[in-house]
Amino acid sequence: MFKFISGFSFSLCRYARDMERPQNSVARTPTDSIMAQRRSKNKSYRQSYRSCLGAASRLSHTPGWTARRLNTSRRTKSHNITEKVNPEDLALLVKTEWQLSYVTPLYQFRHTQLRSYSRQLSAFITAEKQQGLAVEVEGAQTSFRVSFSAVQGLGETDDDAETVLLQIHSKPVFAGKDEAQKLVWSGWLTCINGNPEYLHLLPKDFTCLPLFGSRGAENLTSLVKSWFQQTFDCCFGPLEINQTCLQWLAALWTNCHIESSIQHLKMIWTLPVEPPLQITYTVNSQDVWELWNSVRNPSLESREEEEAARSIDIEEVTRFMQGLKSHFYRHFRLDLSAGRLSQVSSALGSAKFSGRIKMSNSRYVLTTLTLLTECALLKMPI
């Protein structure tokens, strides 16, 4: 028996869909010779991507999205990255909500050229502003200062490219002479535990940083994406966190409860009725932990060496979610299986279907980014 009643929060409201639309990926055309070279490189990239996906993806009826699926099992453990990652960089990544996008491999991107990229992007934003594309961030701005930096110590494997952090600072027109510039936009590109087979098949001129997070004014985000597309011949697209990924995050975060209390597990479900309904379902930590233990593989519970980094498989995730939905049905006679899971949150973080993610505990940043990197690679067009 599960004592979930005290942990419930139930509300009904009108649901409004809010999904990020894909950004315009049209880039300015450079010289014909350069474009011809890049087309050749892109062809090699596409062939490498298809090779990684298998023969089935070469069929003529294959859609322009990968046919692969998320891994059916994964290991979870906490990582003390505070000793390896710059505290300032870590503070920016954690406890901030990011809007996610996927990014195709960057052509001729070099980590050794980050200082040059800072100057180029700053000049690009200034030029766009002078052409009448005003960038309004809390009022009129003077100049924008862009900084690129590599986040040391965040990678998991030698195949992963170093995470890149972007920051844009600016000062309002009427700011005092000695007033410092303020951070008005931030973003990052990363690849944590990327598919090694795919990474090895990429041509050497391409750098894979498939996961992009941004926070700040939307017009600045559009300008940053536009500059990347023109400079590195890449493409951005919205990265929704689908229901399967949300279920994985619910299980992964619950599995971390012994080391770092999740405090509660909150889920928001959307039911397709008229008018649409949103159901908020909250379970306290002890109850959800007991349910999680009940669906775990018994052979793992008796092996102490598995506690630090034990494997979770999709069958356990499915049983865990089914247990939550069954309990809800017994009390309210509402079948959540008919709806869609659109948000998951706990003390360790929150994730929304619209592609917004917040990581609240640095020890589980790598676990979360590994799953999201996998999602980005799968969403990438062939």
Rank of each mutant, 00 (worst) to 15 (best):
A91T: 12
A55S: 12
T280P: 03
L220P: 02
L59S: 14
K204N: 04
R17V: 14
S337C: 09
T142E: 15
A338C: 13
L202K: 06
W98M: 06
S51H: 13
L199S: 08
D158H: 10
L199W: 04
I312M: 13
I192F: 05
C208I: 08
I382L: 14
T163E: 12
R110S: 15
W65H: 11
T62N: 00
Q229H: 09
F228S: 01
T82G: 06
S48V: 02
S226N: 06
F148E: 08
A309N: 14
D32I: 09
S362N: 12
D205L: 01
L271A: 04
T282R: 14
T157L: 04
K129I: 06
Y364T: 08
H200D: 13
F109L: 01
P105N: 11
P210N: 10
T373Q: 05
W185V: 04
G339H: 08
N284G: 05
M380P: 00
G213H: 02
G323Q: 04
S143R: 12
Q243P: 00
Q243A: 01
A376T: 07
V184Q: 05
A123D: 13
V164R: 08
Y281N: 02
V288P: 10
K204A: 08
V85Y: 04
E305H: 11
G323F: 00
A36F: 10
S9N: 15
E305I: 05
S73Q: 13
T157K: 01
S350R: 15
M359G: 01
T373S: 13
T112R: 15
D233L: 01
S60W: 07
S260N: 10
K358Q: 15
G153D: 06
S143P: 03
G355Q: 02
P87R: 07
K225C: 13
A150Y: 02
M321H: 05
A347D: 11
G64W: 12
F212S: 15
R110V: 05
N297M: 06
R119V: 05
S116Y: 09
L246E: 00
I279V: 15
Q108A: 14
D158Y: 08
S48H: 07
I312R: 11
I192Q: 01
T368K: 02
E315N: 01
L220R: 05
A251P: 11
C191S: 15
A251D: 07
F10Q: 10
Q230R: 08
Q247G: 09
K182F: 07
V288K: 03
E197L: 11
Q23W: 02
P298W: 07
R28S: 05
Q99P: 07
S311F: 04
Y117P: 09
G176W: 08
R303E: 06
A56R: 04
A16C: 08
N219P: 09
W188S: 00
A27P: 00
V295D: 02
S40E: 08
E136R: 09
E138Y: 15
